[in-house]
């Protein structure tokens, strides 16, 4: 068996008129949730997918300003630029921003770490469920996409979670036409993914077309890294260089922005959106494969975490 990656196709030549259809679909989904749910909230991490979602929410509500609050589950291990960007966006769109932190869950004892430097990413689900209960949210709007991972490819656009945040893949509601069933029993809530049908390339093309502002980490910048296999691990206070590591300073950018302990940059010189689109179109590694340290644990890692209430 010797299969090579097929590079016959150059997606940067794809026309962009499909963005109009993807945008219209997302606006429709957002408006259904806003109209039918009692207390929806938009999950805003400062990552590019949630930045696109926030921009779409602005368009869905317009001429009203965004009428739902933003929620950020802060692991306490975020880059400062991302936190500053998050606050700036909440102010620009005049949105109420709730921040709940994994640190508080640790203090309360609902999150127990195995060791102090353990990645806090998996524990966001605990803090999220606590925030949902605290505010009584009945729908959480999120920027997850089906192309990110195999388990996500099977998630509905409007997905019911029970009070433990559990996703039951075998008992999903059928979702037909654009008729979304947003009814939930007391204590259950919805996770809604308006950009389910977008790919990473669609997201970047849309960011370019709509001039969506992003944190600077998404663009090429010099950074100290250590190479571990084919992954670049950024040198930070949480992921320090180990004895024997060779620290290099390279030009790199992040393709996803999450918890410092589990998000890795890729080598890149793309300093603007157009360059990133060219790179994305040519890139032969999937987004999560290249940059997420947490999905590598096992082939079924994402499904397992979703069942446990992860976004």
């Amino acid at each position: 068996m010797n299969w090579q990656v097929n590079t016959a196709f150059n997606p940067s030549h794809v026309a962009t008129d499909h963005l109009d259809l993807l945008e219209a679909e997302a606006l429709f989904i957002l408006r259904e949730v806003i109209a039918e749910c009692r207390n929806p909230v938009l999950l805003f991490s400062g990552g590019k997918d949630s930045a696109v979602l926030l921009h779409l929410a602005y368009k869905a509500f317009h001429p009203e300003r965004i009428g739902c609050a933003l929620l950020h589950i802060d692991t306490g291990h975020n880059y400062d630029e991302v936190i500053a960007y998050r606050d700036r966006m909440a102010e620009r769109y005049d949105c109420q921003l709730h921040v709940r932190s994994v640190e508080d869950s640790i203090r309360k004892g609902s999150v127990r770490l195995r060791h102090a430097l353990e990645s806090r990413n998996p524990y966001q689900s605990v803090t999220l469920m606590e925030a949902i209960a605290e505010f009584g949210f009945d729908a959480c709007l999120g920027g997850a996409r089906r192309d990110e991972e195999k388990a996500r490819a099977k998630e509905r656009i409007v997905s019911v979670r029970d009070e433990f945040g559990q996703w039951e893949p075998k008992h999903q509601r059928p979702e037909l036409w654009s008729l979304y069933n947003t009814r939930v029993a007391l204590g259950d809530h919805l996770r809604v993914f308006p950009i389910s049908n977008w790919t990473e390339l669609d997201v970047w093309q849309y960011i370019q077309r709509e001039d969506v502002e992003l944190p600077a980490l998404y663009f090429a910048h010099p950074r100290q890294v250590v190479r571990r296999g084919d992954i670049l691990v950024p040198v930070t206070h949480l992921t320090p260089a180990q004895a024997g590591d060779t620290v290099e300073t390279i030009s790199c950018r992040f393709r996803t922005v999450g918890d410092i302990s589990c998000t890795a940059p890729v080598a890149s010189t793309a300093s603007n959106v157009a360059d990133i689109i060219t790179e994305t179109a040519q890139c032969l590694l999937t987004e999560r494969g290249a940059t997420r340290l947490d999905d590598r644990a096992s082939d079924a890692a994402m499904e397992q975490r979703k069942k446990e209430g992860y976004f």
Binding site: F9, V14, H18, R146, A153, K154, S196, N197, A300
Partner: peptide, 27 residues
């Protein structure tokens, strides 16, 4: 494409999975 754990155990596809691909002509 067979994404879910149960599917890989049984070797069958049990739910709708959405896939995306593009050519220069279409998404």
């Amino acid at each position: 494409t067979d994404g879910l754990i149960a599917e890989r155990e049984q070797g069958i596809t049990i739910d709708v999975a959405y896939r995306y691909f593009s050519t220069e002509r279409r998404k």
